[in-house]
Design a protein around this nucleic acid. Structure first.
Length: 315
DNA sequence: TGCCAGGCGGGGT
DNA sequence: ACCCCGCATGGC
């Protein structure tokens, strides 16, 4: 097991607006990256350990490959990943009028969905295809455990997620062991694409190019692409609407048959983020239960469930 | 036991 | 432009 090299400790700039470190750290996360206090980000060849004190957020930066360079750039990436500059004021003001997300400005204020790399977003999104929330995150858990690299930072065991070449080296058999089922072939093809075009795996890649390249892969469609854009580019104009959300929209907005149109006109440029928050407030429960929750007005997260906000405690 | 999920593609009409 | 089915796997 390699030991990352400590490079330095930095204070992060004050968030512009509402920012809740714990909510931001815990949402859709695993125990090896968030433990309730410390948040670990793996950014290329760097590992950043983020904590909160009275002075604000601090970041301790480690190098995986021993090199020391571009520290300012690493801190810029941290800012982007955490959404420290993301102003959700308008999102909250729409949410207050929304039949599903009206509790968000109060209950989940300051939660920013962490950005992840396009490649990692692809893994997440493909695992969500045609499976329940729990099954999808179990697949992802298996992939990281089987193909990621374990390292120890500050006494905490953490995981460096597999790169495209790691997945190709492990091959389709390891993916089958990760129980991803028929998604294995798609993941292999995506790994080949990202290995061939590493420029796709940056946050500078354009939305249009990412869309076009991903669409060329068999097994990747509109839902997967849109979710990737939300999770990697903070691009919310095109909401990832799956069967689950479609039903909820039809019900909440009386919009059967024109779900996407109605949703977009309500949420505008925040559509994609609203889609993701819907999974958070309803704890990503299977459709029948989610509908019941909505009808009964139970639209706040339940801390007792295995859910987007509590995943890190259970997996 | 079947059936069906935060999809997708192929083949039918 | 639709409609319908199969596809790995796991949960009920």
């Amino acid at each position: 097991m390699d030991k990352p090299v400590f490079l330095g400790e930095y204070t992060l700039p004050k968030p512009r607006v509402d920012f809740d470190f714990k909510l931001t750290g815990m949402v859709y996360n695993f125990s090896w990256w968030f433990n309730g206090n410390k948040l670990i980000l793996v950014l290329g060849d760097y590992i950043v350990v983020i904590g909160e004190s009275r002075e604000g957020l601090n970041a301790r930066v480690y190098s995986i490959n021993g090199r020391r360079k571009d520290l300012d750039e690493v801190l810029k990436l941290v800012e982007y990943v955490l959404g420290l500059n993301e102003d959700l004021t308008e999102f909250y003001s729409i949410a207050l009028k929304d039949p599903i997300l009206n509790r968000v400005p109060l209950k989940l204020r300051g939660l920013h969905v962490r950005a992840t790399s396009p490649w990692n977003a692809v893994l997440i999104s493909v695992c969500q295809q045609n499976a329940s929330f729990k099954q999808g995150w179990r697949m992802l858990y298996n992939i990281y455990k089987l193909m990621g690299r374990e390292v120890v930072v500050e006494g905490t065991r953490t995981i460096i997620p597999p790169k495209p070449l790691d997945v190709l080296e492990h091959g389709v058999n390891a993916l089958t062991r990760a129980r991803v089922g028929y998604r294995a072939k798609t993941i292999i093809e995506l790994a080949k694409l990202f290995a061939r075009k590493p420029e796709l795996n940056t946050w500078e890649v354009s939305v249009g190019e990412l869309e076009e390249e991903l669409l060329s892969v068999k097994g990747v469609g509109s839902y997967t692409i849109r979710l990737v854009l939300v999770l990697s580019k903070r691009y919310y104009e095109k909401p990832p609407i799956d069967r689950w959300l479609k039903k909820l929209i039809a019900l909440a907005y009386k919009a059967e048959g024109r779900e996407e149109e109605v949703y977009k006109s309500f949420w505008g440029k925040w559509s994609g983020l609203a889609a993701l928050f819907t999974t958070i407030v309803l704890d990503a429960e299977p459709l029948t239960k989610a509908i019941k929750r909505l009808v009964e007005g139970r639209i706040e997260p339940d801390p007792n469930l295995v859910s987007p906000l509590t995943l890190w405690k259970h997996l």
